[in-house]
């Protein structure tokens, strides 16, 4: 309908005023129709809207309110101003949690993106069978907690199959989840394993959107495969890569279940990621106000990270234009 109003007037000037009147009427009916669509549109949006308001908007606003209170879930919240926030800045465990989380995100995103990119290229160029492409997605189809438990058992110090192999090779056993050095790399590794297929699929979709003729031209010009990759594939893949990065980084910052079912934050504080700390404060120590303040801080950090990524990697522009 909007095209009607955008149509260029075929006859410029005032030679046919009657036509103008007609066009004006058309414009009016167009607006009326638009308003009529609004109702229908609202009806269609409604189910999603109800969900959004009930499960996102209200909890978020309430969470922000609770972050300024002392609240133990049993009883009413009491307003304490910004006390929670000032306490957080002096809280060693918070800074430790941030450090651990950043370490996790770095390892997880670094490995995941590179491996996924490699897999996507293989899917694009080599493995054309749907079966193999589908198989890459399999780990993602298993629930997070199951994946975590599976690896927890396989990497067990005493009885895990991985340590049995290591000791069969004559090497010392490794306490994958038990030692401070290994806990976060292990958890990051487990999640890379689960998510790489899915991330590869997203990147693969991006690869397919790159027009084939560009590659043909490049090969006619005698560009080497490496040169083609850096000069054609990477720049044109950028919008998709940015989207993938934004989504995976946000997801990665919120790692919780893998930690919860394996180390529970330990040993000492080595794997107490920020979500684990929030959970501990809220559901373990009934300090929902403090936990809400931590969540708000995480929310702000994630918003900033997403903004910076979009801004500096120009995720909303494409070089194809």
């Amino acid at each position: 309908m909007t095209t009607i109003t955008k149509l260029p007037d075929p006859v410029a000037g005032g030679s046919k005023p009657s036509y103008r009147g007609k066009a004006g009427r058309a414009r009016k009916t167009g607006r009326r129709r638009r308003l009529g669509d609004l109702r229908i549109a609202l009806l269609f949006i409604l189910p999603a809207m109800v969900g959004f308001v009930a499960f996102y908007l209200v909890p978020t606003v309430r969470g922000i309110y609770l972050s300024f209170t002392e609240y133990s879930i049993l009883g009413d919240p009491t307003w304490i101003g910004t006390k929670n926030y000032t306490a957080i800045f002096g809280d060693e465990l918070f800074w430790n949690a941030m450090g651990v989380t950043v370490q996790y995100v770095g390892l997880n995103i670094g490995f995941q993106t590179i491996i996924a990119l490699g897999l996507a290229l293989l899917m694009h160029r080599v493995a054309k069978s749907t079966f193999i492409r589908g198989a890459l997605l399999l780990p993602f189809l298993v629930a997070n907690v199951i994946v975590a438990l599976l690896w927890f058992w396989m990497l067990d110090y005493q009885m895990g199959i991985v340590n049995e192999l290591i000791s069969w090779l004559g090497l010392p056993r490794i306490a994958f989840f038990g030692s401070e050095q290994w806990a976060i790399p292990t958890i990051a590794g487990v999640n890379v394993w689960r998510h790489m297929g899915y991330t590869a699929l997203l990147i693969f979709a991006g690869l397919q959107s790159i027009p084939n003729h560009l590659y043909e031209v490049a090969s006619l010009d005698g560009a080497s495969p490496t040169r083609t990759f850096w000069s054609i594939t990477m720049p044109l893949l950028r919008p998709v890569l940015v989207l993938v990065l934004v989504v995976t980084v946000i997801g990665s910052f919120q790692v919780f279940d893998t930690v919860a079912v394996t180390t529970g934050g330990g040993p000492v504080n080595a794997s107490r990621v920020i979500q684990m700390y929030i959970y501990q404060k809220a559901f373990g120590e009934s300090d929902f106000g403090y936990a809400s303040a931590l969540s708000v801080i995480l929310f702000v950090i994630l918003a900033l990270v997403a903004f910076i990524q979009m801004k500096f990697l120009k995720g909303n522009e494409s070089d194809l234009d």
Binding site: D156, Y157, G178, P267
Partner: peptide, 19 residues
């Protein structure tokens, strides 16, 4: 045993396994 080896392990089961 070292503390790191107790993560995910059961004290009783290790006893049962003769460790």
């Amino acid at each position: 045993p070292k503390l790191e080896t107790t993560v995910g392990a059961s004290l009783a089961d290790n006893f049962g396994a003769g460790k």
